[in-house]
Simulated scan of single mutants.
Amino acid sequence: MEGEYSKKKRSEDDEEHLFHVIYKVPSADGPYGRAKHAQLVQKDPEAALVWFWKAINAGDRVDSALKDMAVVMKQLDRTEEAIEAIKSFRVLCSRNSQESIDNILLDLYKKCGRIDEQIALLKQKLRSIYRGEAFNGRPTKTARSHGKKFQVSVKQETSRLLGNLGWAYMQKSNYMAAEVVYKKAQMIDPDDNKACNLAFCLMKRARYDEARSILKDILLGRTQGAEAIRTRSRAQELLTELENETQMLPLDLLGLDLDEDFVDGLERLMNAWAPSRSRRLPIFEEISTSRDQLAC
């Protein structure tokens, strides 16, 4: 019996060591380490939440504890609680962690349908880019996805945020604002997924020829991979819908809801990337024209 106990204990110790190596969790017996053990080894999210709270209160790796706790809460469909926790305790976190906390908050807003707050935060993050505050002043940042690290440029991040902003406007059926934002995103860092969304907005606004041209360009693409195949499939569905459409809804004259300083910031950013442009970009002329029309 004693030999079996020793063997079991040694196996548990090996498992514990492997856990710390893989997840890079401190081996100290602190609340954050206990929280991660409950989350990843014991698979007990409720117990993990208790220890994450204790870690925050004890000042034990508060940045990581708050972000990890919010992720676990989202998995448990306690999204609203996660949002309030972030709003209450992010002041305890370091400046370097605020950007990643924003990204978690955006995901939580999206999950629970708080679109207006999502839009406000996206515009705030875009303004921080215009002010040169993104990535702590560096031109790139290291991101992680599915365990792999990669570099993201400011231009790529701007396009990503604009794409998310366009999607949020689409959820509010504000296709005019979504169109403007998606066009800007495509000028900065184009991709077929955002192009599909732009075509959808144009269809909603009865701009069939423009939408058809964009969708046909997507279908002519030669990019491989699962994502590219899904995007082309969606483009084909939209094109079929467009061709079969006999009557579209009236143009929805919703306001752009794009602040003047927000629009000016976009233009300044584009001018910085293309200094040879001395006049307002056509897209901004369209924004101004649309705003004047709506004012009338």
Rank of each mutant, 00 (worst) to 15 (best):
G147N: 02
Y130L: 00
K74Q: 13
K141P: 07
N164A: 15
N136C: 11
C112P: 06
I115A: 07
Q151P: 08
N174F: 06
L121E: 03
A177Y: 00
T79G: 00
N164R: 15
Y175C: 03
S128G: 10
C112H: 07
R90V: 08
M73G: 05
S173R: 14
L92W: 02
V154Q: 02
S100Y: 09
K149S: 13
N136Q: 14
E133C: 03
N96L: 13
L92Q: 08
S128Y: 06
M69Y: 07
M69R: 04
P139F: 03
V71T: 13
V154R: 04
Q171G: 10
K155M: 14
R160G: 10
E80L: 10
A178S: 05
A70E: 04
M170A: 09
I101Q: 00
S145E: 15
R114G: 08
T140A: 09
V152I: 09
S100E: 11
Q98K: 05
R160M: 11
K149V: 12
E80C: 08
S145L: 15
C112R: 08
K110V: 11
K110S: 14
L165M: 03
Q171R: 13
A168H: 02
G113Q: 04
Y109E: 00
I86S: 03
E84W: 11
K172R: 11
N96Y: 12
I86H: 00
A70I: 06
N96D: 15
L76Y: 00
L121K: 02
R144Y: 11
Q98R: 03
Q118Y: 07
S100W: 07
E179I: 00
Q98I: 05
Q98D: 04
T140D: 10
N164E: 15
L161S: 01
V71R: 10
K172Y: 05
K148Y: 11
K111L: 11
K125Q: 11
F150I: 07
Y169P: 01
E81K: 07
S173M: 12
S159K: 04
I104T: 12
E84M: 11
M176E: 13
L122V: 04
Q118E: 12
E80I: 10
A82C: 02
A177G: 04
E117K: 08
K148E: 12
Y130P: 04
T142P: 07
K141Q: 11
L126T: 01
G113L: 03
Q75W: 10
V154N: 02
Q151R: 13
Q118W: 07
K87N: 12
Y175T: 06
L126P: 06
P139Q: 05
G132S: 02
L126H: 00
N174T: 08
